[in-house]
Computed example of a mutant assay.
Amino acid sequence: MGDHYQVDLVALEKAATGVNGTLDQISVKKVSDIAHEETEVGHQQLASTLSDFLDRWQRGVDNLAKDGQEIATRLTATVNAYHRVEEHTHKQFHGILRGTHDPGVK
């Protein structure tokens, strides 16, 4: 009987909520908010190099955020699909038990 599996819907919901919370946090503060102007770092070439680095870093963060949003969307869709199937199955069983539904008829 080890062939059975379970899906922890609460864990999936928490994972989606956690991903969305992280996305909210990173949307508040941008990488470009890190001081990188010449007047702040004291050297023009360092400021330029730092600016280039921060631009690439921000693109990476943006890509990760996009991927994270896709993950959260799919987790939520999975939870919703399980809930719909569970509700449908519940209604079918109640219909069978009340004698108002014939399981052989679609």
Rank of each mutant, 00 (worst) to 15 (best):
L12R: 01
E13M: 11
E13H: 12
E13P: 00
K14P: 00
A15D: 08
T17I: 02
T17Y: 10
T17M: 10
T17K: 13
G18A: 09
G18N: 13
N20E: 12
G21F: 05
G21A: 05
G21E: 05
G21K: 04
T22L: 14
L23M: 11
L23A: 06
D24H: 07
D24L: 07
D24C: 01
Q25N: 12
Q25G: 03
I26A: 01
S27M: 05
V28F: 07
V28H: 11
V28S: 13
K30N: 10
K30W: 03
V31T: 04
V31I: 14
S32H: 09
S32A: 13
D33V: 01
D33W: 10
I34K: 00
I34W: 00
A35W: 02
A35F: 03
E38S: 15
E38H: 06
T39L: 07
T39I: 05
E40C: 11
E40V: 07
V41Q: 06
V41H: 10
V41E: 08
G42Y: 10
G42S: 12
G42Q: 12
G42W: 11
G42K: 11
G42D: 11
H43P: 02
H43R: 12
H43D: 15
Q44F: 14
Q44L: 13
Q44W: 15
Q45F: 13
L46S: 11
L46F: 11
L46K: 09
A47M: 09
A47Y: 06
A47K: 06
S48V: 04
T49W: 13
L50W: 06
L50E: 06
L50D: 03
S51N: 14
S51F: 05
F53I: 05
F53T: 05
F53D: 04
L54K: 08
L54M: 09
D55P: 00
D55F: 06
D55A: 14
R56D: 09
R56L: 08
W57L: 13
W57I: 00
W57M: 10
W57P: 02
R59T: 07
G60F: 09
V61Q: 01
V61K: 01
D62Y: 02
D62A: 11
N63A: 11
N63E: 09
